[in-house]
Design a protein around this nucleic acid. Structure first.
Lengths: 198, 198
DNA sequence: GCACTCGATGCACCGACTGCAGTTAATACC
DNA sequence: GGTATTAACTGCAGTCGGTGCATCGAGTGC
């Protein structure tokens, strides 16, 4: 990797690090982009070369995660279907070894601006899931609605469980799995086959 | 009703009307709060006496709707449980006699700022549903997660169906009902009883 | 008629975000 | 090694959403 690329990534990483720290220490609204930039040792203008919005700095790995999720759906590594994969991804995301993630989701529960950012995140996952389901079901008006509804519902479940896990430290995977199971059958593969001939 | 109150409501109504029109005609980002205010014949400062954000003007009846939803859950008029009630409310909201609502939801599909506003809306419904479920289940960490997950999932389904209905003009109630049914059993009253002893 | 309330206003201000015109250091090319 | 180019970073001026504050003036209660 280039020295330039490394510098760039380092700047980005530093910005994200200080952003999350300041959000946690003194609150999201009470932190200005200027403060973050100064703390990271760069100019305020530079902040926006790395993040589109102030809130985006709290989720610096968003693009990678979505890309990883999407490509995994495309190749054979997806365990069964996207909904199950979503659960697995979620479970992985709750690795207790990552205090950063816990901080992030605890903030998420308090700061509405970050919930908005998170909702935007979800929309990308939603697109990936919808695309996957539509590819399996074919593109009709009916399947499109169904795919959107299922994607929305799944993400709603996943998000709620994720936040709960981070906040209360409980294992929400069971709840997540149970609700998914109810909606889509055993290993969540029901909609891929049986819903079709409804 | 007072003449003052009437004036106030009229101002608010006019602002909302012009806001939605301008959003539709020239786009959300391309419309400034100043333009809306001028079109409505008031000052820009006044706009924020009626709406907290630019996007909020696109959903002027939000508070009433949430209040109505919440109180109905409290008294005996709720048909069974909040999830079923949500479906009914949704179906009512799709009254084809309301072109304004169609415009609103069609915008929703395009403008991310409005989706953020809508997500904020959903959070209020979510609170109402969670409160209702928790009252039925009792307040434990487990039930709290479950209630949040179910509320999120239901709203996800409802939102997707609502947008699809407004956009494609199809009847998405069937999809909505079907998915709810899968998750919660016949008239959606399963979680109130059977989930408890899982 | 008089005091009061309250919606509307103008003004100054903050902070998020953008476009543009540099500067400087790493890199590619010869 | 010297030179042209690229691209991260910077400063500045500007737009726009949103807020606090003092004020005006038309309704309202008495």
């Amino acid at each position: 990797m280039n020295q330039r690329e490394m510098q760039r990534l380092e700047t980005r990483r530093t910005l994200a690090e200080h952003a999350l720290r300041l959000f946690q220490e003194q609150g999201f609204d009470e932190t200005t982009v200027d403060e973050i930039a100064v703390a990271a040792g760069v100019s305020a203008r530079t902040f926006f070369l790395h993040f589109a919005t102030k809130a985006a700095a709290a989720f610096p790995d968003h693009d990678e995660r979505v890309a990883s999720f999407t490509t995994r759906l495309g190749d054979g590594h997806s365990p069964g279907n996207p909904l199950l994969h979503l659960c697995v991804t979620m479970a992985g995301g709750l690795d207790p070894g990552s205090p950063t993630r816990r901080i992030r989701y605890r903030l998420l529960d308090k700061v509405s601006a970050l919930r908005d950012e998170d909702a935007r995140t979800d929309r990308d996952y939603e697109q990936a899931i919808v695309a996957y389901l539509m590819q399996a079901w074919g593109d009709t008006v009916e399947t499109r609605v169904r795919a959107n509804a299922i994607a929305n519902a799944s993400l709603g479940i996943a998000r709620a469980c994720l936040i709960a896990s981070s906040k209360d430290g409980i294992d929400a995977n069971e709840v997540c799995f149970d609700l998914m199971h109810r909606m889509f059958g055993s290993p969540f593969d029901v909609p891929l086959h049986s819903l079709k001939q409804d």
